[in-house]
Nucleic acid binder design. Structure first.
Length: 288
DNA sequence: GCCAGCCTGTTG
DNA sequence: CAACAGGCTGGC
């Protein structure tokens, strides 16, 4: 489910409630979703900051007495993971796998991690030990930061020259946080067919694509994410970027630009949505 | 590079 | 009932 804009929205919705709160107890109902690097204690900790990197939510934990950095809590939502701030005493839902019991200004509340498909993961690491998680350690640049330069993107394009542009954008080591929705939307907005081979893109197309990725992610955050069914932020609020989608899940409907029927195909093993007219297949230089 | 497999729920 | 779903990993 959550891609970068959704994780960022979850982070923003939870930050005012969680920063400064004390984690009193951590209950694990389904151990498969949880891992702990060493025998680091589960509680108590003070939640100091909420950060996001790609599709990961990172919570910095400190000792409640000394304030010393004590641990790192990593959350990856995969397809259907959710983190919800709930009133004390709320019975855990059917697919709640972890319950964090917290207090803030003396008032108790809980934070539940639930995930129907159980693909999501929560892990507790030593402080400053982001590199212990292979997925987090290998992430490419943050697309909305200055780190994601055109030169860096072009270099990655040379490294992955023979694959499809769709697979390139979904590769988290190339750029962090792009998933299926924002990938299809960015490709539409840059007029590039997802099945194009990376080495057929001109430098100009690469620049357009990078700009489109940034634009679409920023817009997604502005609309508080995309909700089809599952996704809600940390307080249970839906997103509304689904209203702005040009191609994603619009197969059979007319292109908002040219009226051509949107098609759905499989590229990089994922459902992929295109306007065959706005996103012609072929490298655009008409040679053979 | 590609794709099956991980899970459960929903949709056609 | 089979196909599919917003992600990622590991085995080829």
């Amino acid at each position: 489910m959550p891609e970068l804009p959704e994780v960022e929205t979850i982070r923003r919705s939870l930050a005012p409630h969680l920063t400064g709160a004390v984690l009193r107890e951590l209950r694990i109902f389904h151990p498969v979703v949880f891992s702990r690097h060493d025998d680091r204690r589960l509680a108590p900790w003070r939640l100091v900051a909420l950060r996001r990197r790609g599709k990961y939510l990172i919570i910095d934990l400190a000792d409640p007495e000394s304030g010393e950095p004590g641990a790192l809590l990593l959350i990856h939502f995969r397809m259907t993971g959710k983190l919800l701030c709930l009133a004390e005493g709320t019975p855990p839902a059917k697919h709640t796998h972890i319950r964090f019991s917290l207090t803030r200004d003396g008032k108790p509340f809980c934070l539940d991690f639930n995930d129907v498909r159980r693909f999501g993961r929560v892990s507790l690491l030593p402080p400053f030990a982001e590199t212990l998680d292979p997925g987090l350690a290998s992430l490419g640049p943050e697309p909305l930061s200055d780190d994601w330069t055109l030169d860096r993107f072009l270099e990655q394009m040379r490294r992955h020259a023979r694959t499809t542009v769709k697979a390139l954008l979904l590769n988290q080591t190339v750029v962090a946080g792009v998933g299926n929705i924002y990938c299809d939307e960015a490709l539409f907005r840059s007029g590039i067919h997802p099945a194009r081979r990376v080495n057929t893109l001109s430098d100009e197309e690469a620049r357009l694509l990078r700009d489109a990725v940034r634009h679409v992610l920023a817009e997604g955050i502005g609309h508080r994410g995309t909700t089809f069914r599952d996704y809600v932020d940390g307080l249970g609020a839906r997103g509304f970027f689904q209203q702005e989608l040009q191609v994603f899940r619009r197969e059979g409907k007319p292109c908002r630009t040219c009226g051509t029927v949107i098609e759905k195909l499989t590229v990089a093993g994922r459902g992929t949505h295109v306007c065959p007219v706005c996103q012609p297949l072929g490298d655009g230089t008409s040679h053979n």
